[in-house]
């Protein structure tokens, strides 16, 4: 496998705060998921790759060159930051034109590339609307559009699925997967395991500035399965639902949550639990307001891996 991104003993401090701690990592073509809780060092790592930060120690190379103070490299790199970075008073098309012109494209080529990017992220119909009128999902897609507009080789996507509704997430996942399938190198970060799982099977776990694990997602999944999951259901008859699960081998604990109508199940086998839950709800005619997993147990895995 050709390595596109190579980090060796890479460290970054912000004053006394350690952002990254001696990371050594190789990333090749395809989609690689960077998974870690908030504050783990994902964004710091991505900003080192995109040359926005200078390493305190160690080295990082992207496409064979150091990204720090190397603007020429950025023609081959697309960065989608976590936070919105827009001028609210300009239209989506104007924003993209401003971004692509920074790559040196002449006006006509810039316009056609901007239009193509808007088509790709399904924002062509809204191209003349001011960004301040865009929904959260549209903003995320516009951020992705500015990332793909110059057809880069390497994509650095910092939490691209955050804040999207399920439909928006599905569209974004489809788009990122299609980019990955075309041989591009994509590093995508998230703190939510199912999001990364939907994108790729190759993941890197990062926590407190260190790489805890890297490899196939099944290894991580297996680790997570060893820890019980909490699933919260808010419905019109929580007691009936709870009673139905008493004695279920997959449920280790049942409790009632703080919200009205909330029952919280603890299970060691999430898939089987969900199968059983669906059947139970239909059979008993229980009306569900919300099903959520307050703890996707990633933290538990991190604690397990760090031996805490």
């Amino acid at each position: 496998m050709t390595n596109v991104i190579e980090a060796r003993d890479l460290s970054k401090w912000y004053g006394n705060i350690l952002g990254l701690n001696e990371i050594s990592l190789d990333i090749g073509p395809g989609i690689t998921g960077l998974l870690g809780p908030n504050g783990a060092g994902k964004s710091t790592f991505m900003k080192l790759i995109t040359g926005l930060l200078k390493p305190s120690r160690g080295r990082i190379s992207v496409l064979g060159g150091s990204p720090w103070n190397n603007p020429v490299l950025f023609s081959r790199l697309g960065f989608c930051p976590e936070i919105d970075s827009f001028y609210e008073d300009i239209t989506g098309l104007e924003f993209l034109l401003g971004m692509i012109r920074l790559h040196g494209f002449p006006a006509a080529a810039a316009r056609s590339k901007a239009m193509a990017a808007l088509e790709t992220v399904e924002l062509a119909a809204d191209r003349d609307r001011k960004i301040k009128g865009y929904s959260r999902g549209m903003r995320q897609r516009l951020k992705l559009a500015q990332t793909i507009i110059h057809d880069p080789e390497v994509y650095i996507l910092d939490e691209p699925l955050t804040g999207l509704d399920p439909l928006g997430k599905r569209k974004m996942i489809k788009l990122i997967r299609s980019l990955g399938g075309s041989g591009k190198t994509i590093l995508v970060s998230s703190h939510v395991l199912p999001e990364i799982e939907a994108l790729t099977s190759l993941i890197v776990l990062i926590h407190q500035g260190k790489i805890l694990a890297r490899g196939h997602i099944h290894y991580i999944r297996d680790l997570i399965e060893k820890h019980p999951h909490q699933i919260s259901v808010i419905c019109d008859r929580p007691r009936h639902l709870a009673a139905d699960f008493v004695g279920d081998a997959n449920v280790s604990r049942i409790s009632f949550g703080p919200s009205a109508g909330e029952v919280v199940f603890e299970t060691g086998n999430r898939d089987q639990f969900y199968d059983r839950l669906g059947k139970s709800l239909v059979e008993k005619g229980i009306e569900v307001e919300e099903i959520s997993s307050p703890d996707d147990n990633l933290q538990a895995v991190f604690e397990y891996l760090t031996g805490k």
Partner: peptide, 12 residues
Amino acid sequence: NNSLQLYFSRPL
């Protein structure tokens, strides 16, 4: 608007 990171992740 945190736009500086967008500028400086381009050849600039």
